[in-house]
Design a protein around this nucleic acid. Structure first.
Lengths: 238, 238
DNA sequence: CCGTCTCATTGACCTGGATCAAGACGTACC
DNA sequence: GGTACGTCTTGATCCAGGTCAATGAGACGG
């Protein structure tokens, strides 16, 4: 109860609820509850049927997918304020990926069935979902483009730059999640990430403070790194 | 007029309209029209504001994105029956990618503003959109996983297998779109695609008929190719 | 029937990033 | 304090797939 109270400000500040409106929010919140979970907790496993819709209040979680070939990647890393896995909840289809807490987290858990009911009932909520899903689709498109035509160095730079701009305070971000998760999200190995970070640092585009977790600086990370790179100019048929 | 008539069966068979219901469909169709366009036509350019929502009736179109680094890829290839670029239309945001006709196409053009109006009015339509967007998000997740942890050979195999299962007739598909577009969609160069196709053929997993465009056979394409491959097992923290 | 143009294929080579294998820190627990 | 474990970093090597370059094969137009 008191826990719910302390989270309340965060909950109502979440963009998704802003869009959904106060009424829908209140109704969604009624049977929901928050949980404080340690790093490493698995919120749900790939292949399971969704029982909850999650709104992350604090910390970050990774969407981890197993390919048929046995490997594992991180499809996306969600931060505080994000609602995730709406698609599986909406379609009543098993999750395409597992969700793992990459740091200690606080999540709001909204029962999936209740969410679906409200989605049938509240036009407002339905519209908010349209927007949420649209934004999420675009994020994935962006990632695909990034993977297909940027080098490791550029991808790392973009990732850091985004983190920095998200952080409230200026020109500085921390990477609380394990390196292996970040590397996987960026489609590379932890070794390569480490080396790339080192390279960015020694070329002066990044400064790391040893105190807390890795911290970075300035957004000159996006400056033309070296060579343009990239074939794969596609189809300009006719 | 007659053109619209001949397309009608296709339109109403489209999964999106099935979900949206007859009333919403009729209303959406009122100010819409179809166009027959030659291969190579650009439906819209990355960065433009959406004026139409498109439903592809025949042929295929590629979503082509320019990365900041000058390169170009194909994010996705849509086939007959697909509605695309809802996100940009819904969010009233500029397109993230251009759309190019990879073959001759027939498209239904639904004015964007009219679509948005209906989305505000019809709950049914809004729900259909949620489903559509959810499915599209999952497609992108699948592609990201594919890119991150499957080898070129596996990606080509999966692509062909999907094409084959989509094709009505059994165990056989044609690839009418230019090689360069397919290669870009799969995140590789045309050369590599060509080589991989050749390798699949000589290992007996694929048969190509020289007559029409490339044609393939049987779905043993998904069998374990060679070695498992893939690091990037992510974060199993704590 | 013959240039020409574009696109697919093939060949030879090279390189970015993966892999394999030690070290270097912390951090936690005894 | 010590030692043991997990994560991060660094170094050396290898190879999948990209790059560059040449050749083949339809599709037109004259």
């Amino acid at each position: 109860m008191s826990k719910r109270e302390t989270s309340y400000a965060m909950i109502e500040r979440a963009p998704f609820f802003q869009a959904a409106g106060a009424a829908a929010m209140a109704e969604l919140l009624r049977p929901s509850f928050t949980q404080l979970l340690p790093k490493g907790t698995v919120l749900f496993e790939q292949g399971e049927d969704p029982e909850f819709l999650h709104l992350l209040l604090e910390g970050s979680v990774g969407l981890q997918a197993k390919g048929e070939g046995g490997g594992t990647t991180v499809v996306e890393i969600f931060g505080a304020g994000e609602v995730f896995l709406t698609p599986a909840v909406i379609l009543r289809l098993p999750y395409l990926a597992s969700a793992v807490a990459l740091t200690e987290i606080r999540v709001l858990m909204i029962p999936a069935e209740h969410f679906r009911d409200n989605l049938q009932r509240s036009f407002e909520l339905s519209r908010a979902c349209n927007e949420l899903l649209s934004r999420h689709w675009r994020l994935m498109v962006d990632q695909v483009v990034d993977l297909k035509l940027n080098s490791v160095e550029v991808r790392v730079g973009r990732f850091l730059a985004r983190r920095i701009s998200e952080e409230a305070g200026a020109g500085c971000a921390s990477l609380p999640e394990p390196r292996s998760a970040i590397a996987a999200r960026l489609g590379m190995t932890p070794e390569t990430l480490s080396r790339t970070l080192a390279a960015l640092e020694s070329s002066g585009r990044l400064r790391r403070t040893p105190g807390g977790p890795t911290v970075s600086d300035r957004s000159a990370l996006l400056g033309r790194p070296d060579a343009p790179r990239g074939r794969q100019r596609a189809a300009c048929p006719r």
